[in-house]
C-alpha cells in the first residue's frame, strides 16, 4: 500500500496533467453534442455582459449600413401591408396568417457577440428563455436567414449561424422549385455557402435566387437565403455543388428576429407518429 502511495505521489504532476486533459476532452466532446447546455460558453451571463459592452461601441461603426437595411425592410413591409389592407388594388396574395390560425410569431433580438472567421461561428443575442426563446428556433434578419438557436440561458441565447460546419438548412431554387440542403465548410468565406443534393440535370443559372422551403419546421417558406454564384458538378456523383452568395451580411448583423413556429410540435409529432406506424 505504501509503495502505491509513493508511486502516486512521485507521479502527481503527470496525474494532474492527465486529469485536466481528460476534463478538457470531456468538454470538447460534450460541446460537440448538439443542444447540450454547458456553462463554459458565451450564453453565460457574465461573459455576455462584457461582450454586450463591447458591442455597444461596435454598433456605432455600422450605424449607417444598419439604418439603410432597416429602411429597406420598412419599405418592403409597407408594400406587403398595402397588399393585405387594399386587396382590391392588386391581385389578392395568399395570406395564411389569420388571427386565429397564426403560425409564426417573431421576437426581435440584438446581437451582443458574433464571429465570422472561425470554422464554427456563433452569435450571442440578448434574449433568452425569459422572452420565450427555446433551442432550435429559426433566426432571420431583414436581409435573410441567419441561423438556428442552439443554447438558451435566462436572458441570452447562442445562435449557430449558417457559417457553421454542422449547420444544415433546407433550401430551394426559386426559378424551378428544386430543393437541397445548404451547408458550409471552412474552405468558404463569410459570404458563401454550398447548396448540396441538387440533381445534375436540373438547370441552374447564375443569379437564381435561393430561399427557404415549405417543409422546414424552423423557417417560414420563401425567406431569402442568397443568389447562385456558380454551379459545379461534384466529381464522381450525380449531384451538383452550387455555390450560393449569402444575402445576409454576417459581419455587421445587429437586429434579428427569432421565429417561433406555433405549429412546430404538431408537425414534428405527426411526422414521428407516421414514421413509427410505418416501422411496425
Amino acid at each position: 500500500m505504501r509503495t502505491l502511495f509513493d508511486l502516486l505521489w512521485r507521479n502527481h504532476f503527470v496525474l494532474l496533467f492527465v486529469a485536466i486533459q481528460s476534463f478538457c476532452v470531456y468538454l470538447i466532446v460534450q460541446n460537440n453534442r448538439y443542444q447540450h447546455a454547458s456553462f463554459f460558453n458565451s450564453s453565460n451571463a457574465a461573459v455576455a455582459k462584457i461582450n454586450e459592452g463591447v458591442t455597444y461601441f461596435k454598433e456605432y461603426i455600422h450605424l449607417r449600413e444598419n439604418n439603410q437595411l432597416l429602411a429597406e425592410e420598412n419599405a418592403r413591409l409597407r408594400n406587403t401591408l398595402s397588399l393585405i389592407t387594399n386587396p382590391k388594388d392588386t391581385i389578392r396574395p395568399f395570406v395564411s396568417d389569420t388571427l386565429q390560425r397564426q403560425q409564426y410569431t417573431y421576437v426581435t433580438a440584438k446581437v451582443v457577440n458574433s464571429s465570422t472567421t472561425l470554422p464554427n461561428n456563433f452569435l450571442t443575442i440578448d434574449k433568452g428563455s425569459a422572452d420565450g426563446i427555446k433551442p432550435e428556433m429559426g433566426v432571420i434578419c431583414g436581409s435573410g436567414v441567419v441561423g438556428i438557436v442552439q443554447q438558451v440561458s435566462e436572458h441570452y441565447s447562442t445562435v449557430m449561424t449558417l457559417l457553421h460546419s454542422k449547420s444544415k438548412v433546407s433550401a430551394k431554387i426559386n426559378s424551378n422549385g428544386f430543393f437541397g440542403s445548404l451547408v458550409w465548410g471552412d474552405d468558404l468565406n463569410a459570404h458563401e455557402s454550398i447548396l448540396k443534393d441538387i440533381d445534375k440535370t436540373v438547370p441552374v443559372k447564375k443569379g437564381d435566387t435561393v430561399s427557404t422551403t415549405e417543409f422546414s419546421a424552423l423557417f417560414p417558406s420563401g425567406i431569402m437565403i442568397g443568389k447562385v454564384i456558380e454551379s459545379k458538378l461534384n466529381p464522381g456523383s450525380n449531384f451538383n455543388a452550387i455555390k450560393v452568395g449569402l444575402s445576409t451580411n454576417f459581419e455587421n448583423l445587429s437586429y434579428l428576429y427569432v421565429i417561433n413556429n406555433l405549429k412546430k410540435n404538431e408537425q414534428r409529432k405527426l411526422e414521428e407518429e407516421t414514421q413509427k406506424a410505418n416501422e411496425q
Binding site: I20, Q21, C24, V25, Y26, L27, I28, Q30, N31, S38, F40, N41, S42, N44, V47, N51, N113, S115, L118, N120, F122, T158
Partner: peptide
C-alpha cells in the same frame, strides 16, 4: 474558450 464558444479546445 468562453469567449469563443470553442469549449475545451484552447484549454487542452
Amino acid at each position: 474558450d468562453m469567449f469563443q464558444n470553442s469549449t475545451g479546445i484552447h484549454a487542452f
